[in-house]
Design a protein around this nucleic acid. Structure first.
Length: 506
RNA sequence: GCCGUCUUAGCUCAGUUGGUUAGAGCGCUAGAUUGUGGAUCUAGAGGUCCCCUGUUCGAUUCAGGGAGACGGUACCA
């Protein structure tokens, strides 16, 4: 077949795992970020912004993943051959910043930061290769008071966003307790082999909610084969060890003190274990004093968190309600998490700098709020559109736009090249409340015509005959040119509460 | 990473047992109406039939490889 000669055209498409975000979502998301920021500010945190990419060695790798050591991060080489990487979270850049500016910072240093991060992974539903996090961290704070505060602040954030008490819970655990249990269970050792086993155990526990105790049991033992035939290598523990770990993960309950008691029992003689339990008791005392009950902050031994660098308390913000989405009923699960990382800055400084932090997964939380109906998306009134009836009258039209803008009314001149019908259609599509019409007839009479598109749209459901509909010119009003502003304001006031527009200009 | 399904217009999808010019609905642009949103009628734009290689006189169709999308699983600092 003879093909037509074609000029090459690139395919317009978004890269895998990336997406565009439309106007109403951007607005709603920014409102959400503002509310979170207000809570962080209230707690005394200061804003910080760092760049999107860093020297690769400064970001470091905190995940000893034997299989794929270099995956997950987007990297490229500078013209001096040094490797740069896009940040994959906001904590690693913070560690670099603190190390670089250590002496000048008031310590404890408390900062918050939001922005996109990038991970080079297979995208999935609700999982992208670029996503936004909103972090707060306290650096050089050795006591668990800092951790307790993180948990309370996270709870406050969720409530500030309109999530009712009872629909979320902060689940808290301590890595030290976990280590203690492993110690008494006899899962001990040193070197990379032990690291891998340790990691496997953590990952297994992390899957408890999805696979249940039996699945976790298999992962702790020989291994597990899933329905698609994929086999996951296990940790090869003995039955008695597995029993002890499973018992530990199951000892969660409502009363925080009772959880601590159960943990103390399972930790036995282990020193780190005892230390971990003591820390949890201290956290309990702090949050109890502030009246955060277990329905808001609970102790749960099944919380593990991805591991990388955590050394003490770890926490996870979980949404517990179910919601109808396109895919049916879903639980949103974890929308954020964090914990204590005492040796992250040590990489740079050579001295231990204790720190703790919390990170909110913005997109995930956003979809949850959307499902809850907590986002009022269309608060912004679309612009008034001034139509171009006669091209030689542009300065006059532009002046009308200027006058409207001076009054704080969103307005724009029609900047396209099409006829009147297309212009009204455009305004309609933009959700514009009003179009301003000044053709020859109006000009002669010293008037402008205002067309109320919202009212017109309501009337249009009763249209029978097109010609008649046009002649009747529904929802239109001619006002003297000098009263353009007043006319527009009155018309807007039919549909909107205009107090905030006026207030801005007083 | 592994397993499975899929990929034709902006969207949802037909279709070609391998054959000239690949279709529909919706959407889009414009006209009917100097100058009015819906409906109607008319016209128009828009396609490397995912990419590469092979088989063939001829491939959107068949074969091999690749990419991408979706679902499951693994990973998730």
């Amino acid at each position: 077949m003879a093909k037509k000669k074609k000029t090459f055209r690139p395919k317009a498409r978004t890269p895998k795992g990336l997406r565009d975000i439309g106007a109403s979502t951007v607005r709603a998301e920014q409102m959400m970020l503002a509310r979170i920021r207000d809570v962080y500010e209230l707690y005394g945190f200061e804003p910080l912004e760092t760049s999107a990419f860093e020297y690769a060695d400064a970001l470091g790798k905190f995940l000893p993943d034997a299989d794929r050591p270099n995956e997950g991060v987007f990297s490229f080489q500078d013209d001096d051959d040094q490797w740069l990487s896009l940040r994959y979270d906001l904590t690693a850049p913070l560690a670099r910043f603190v190390a670089e500016n250590y002496d000048g910072l008031a310590k404890p240093y408390r900062r918050y930061q939001t922005g996109p991060v990038w991970r080079n992974e297979k995208p999935g539903p609700g999982r992208y290769r670029q996503f936004t996090q909103f972090d707060a961290d306290t650096i050089a704070a050795p006591t668990v008071a800092a951790d307790a505060e993180m948990c309370m602040m996270a709870a406050d954030c969720l409530e500030a966003l309109g999530i009712p008490r009872g629909d979320y819970v902060m689940r808290v655990n301590n890595r030290k307790v976990l280590d203690g249990v492993l110690e008494t269970a006899g899962v001990v050792g040193e070197g990379p082999e032990f690291e891998v086993q340790h990691l496997t155990v953590m990952r297994a526990i992390d899957k408890l909610d999805r696979l249940g105790p039996d699945g976790v049991r298999r992962l702790l033992g020989k291994g597990r084969k899933d329905e698609s035939g994929d086999y996951t290598e296990g940790a090869h523990l003995e039955e008695a060890q597995i029993d002890r770990i499973i018992a530990f993960t199951q000892c969660g309950q409502t009363d925080r003190i009772a959880v601590c008691d159960a943990m103390a029992e399972l930790v036995g003689e282990s020193e780190v274990g005892a230390e971990g339990v003591a820390e949890l008791r201290e956290i309990d005392a702090l949050i109890t004093a502030c009246a955060y009950g277990p329905e808001r902050i609970a102790f749960d031994p099944a919380v593990v968190r991805g591991l990388g660098y955590y050394t003490g308390p770890v926490f996870e913000a979980e949404l517990t309600f179910e919601a109808e989405t396109d895919e049916g009923v879903t639980r949103f699960g974890s929308v954020g998490g964090g914990g204590r990382y005492d040796n992250l800055i040590e990489r740079f400084k050579g001295v231990k700098v204790p720190a703790t932090g919390f990170s909110i997964g913005v997109s995930r939380l956003y979809s949850a709020l959307e499902a809850l109906g907590k986002l009022n998306q269309d608060e912004v009134i679309a612009p008034v559109v001034v139509l171009v009836m006669d091209k030689d009258q542009l300065p006059g039209y532009q002046l009308m736009v200027r006058e409207l803008r001076n009054e704080g009314i969103r307005a724009e001149l029609y900047l396209g090249g099409s006829g009147m019908k297309a212009q009204v259609k455009y305004a309609d599509k933009r959700n514009s409340p009003i179009v301003v019409i000044e053709g020859g007839n109006e000009r002669e009479a010293g008037e402008v015509t205002l067309k109320d598109l919202i009212l017109g749209s309501q009337l249009s459901s009763q249209i029978e005959d097109n010609a008649e509909w046009r002649e009747s010119q529904p929802a239109q009003l001619a006002v003297p040119r000098a009263e353009l502003i007043k006319g527009v304001k009155d018309m807007l006031a039919r549909h909107f509460d205009m107090s905030h527009v006026d207030a801005r200009h007083r």
